[in-house]
Amino acid sequence: MNQLLDREATAATAQFTAKQGQYLAFIWAYSQIDGRAPAEADFQRYFKVTAPSVHQMLKTLDQLRLIEKQPGVARSIKLLVPPQRLPILGLD
């Protein structure tokens, strides 16, 4: 239980780059619209990047404790950053 609270507290105060912020904002927006987390292919289409680029970004966000993923479970991304800390999602 304490690990969960520590992880959420870390996410609430963590810093992230502009690009990381866009990925986090995309996760939030997609989840609000579709009712489930985006798949890696959804990131590829939106950001016009390769599958390895998406995978590496999600791995980085997980390591920074900004998201949480269940290995081997599709669409299991959980956003750990409060929505009010996210930037506006833009089109790059």
Rank of each mutant, 00 (worst) to 15 (best):
M1W: 14
M1A: 14
M1C: 13
N2H: 15
Q3W: 15
Q3I: 15
L4G: 13
L4Y: 15
L5G: 12
L5R: 15
R7G: 10
R7M: 10
E8L: 15
E8P: 12
A11V: 09
A11C: 02
A12D: 11
A12F: 11
T13M: 14
T13L: 12
A14R: 08
A14G: 08
Q15R: 13
Q15M: 10
F16D: 06
A18T: 15
A18C: 03
K19A: 13
K19R: 12
G21L: 01
G21T: 01
Q22E: 03
Q22K: 05
Q22I: 05
A25I: 04
A25K: 03
A25M: 03
I27E: 02
W28V: 01
Y30Q: 04
S31C: 00
Q32G: 07
I33F: 10
I33A: 07
D34M: 14
D34R: 13
D34H: 13
D34L: 11
G35P: 01
R36G: 05
R36L: 09
A37L: 01
P38G: 00
P38R: 06
A39K: 10
A39R: 11
E40Q: 15
E40P: 10
E40S: 13
A41H: 08
D42T: 08
D42V: 02
D42L: 07
D42Y: 07
F43Q: 07
R45E: 09
R45Y: 12
Y46I: 01
F47Y: 05
K48R: 14
V49Y: 08
T50K: 05
A51W: 11
A51S: 11
S53P: 07
S53R: 11
V54G: 08
V54Q: 04
V54I: 03
H55L: 11
H55C: 04
H55A: 13
Q56M: 10
Q56T: 12
Q56H: 14
M57V: 03
M57C: 06
M57R: 09
K59C: 04
K59G: 07
K59V: 09
K59R: 05
T60F: 01
T60K: 04
T60S: 02
T60L: 08
L61E: 08
L61P: 05
L61C: 02
D62I: 05
Q63P: 01
R65H: 03
L66C: 00
I67A: 01
I67W: 02
K69N: 02
Q70R: 11
Q70P: 05
P71Y: 06
P71L: 05
V73G: 03
A74N: 11
A74I: 10
S76A: 06
S76V: 00
K78H: 11
L80S: 04
P82H: 05
P82Q: 06
P82I: 03
Q84L: 09
R85E: 00
L86A: 06
I88W: 10
I88A: 09
L89W: 12
L89E: 07
G90D: 13
L91A: 13
L91K: 12
D92K: 14
D92T: 15
D92N: 12
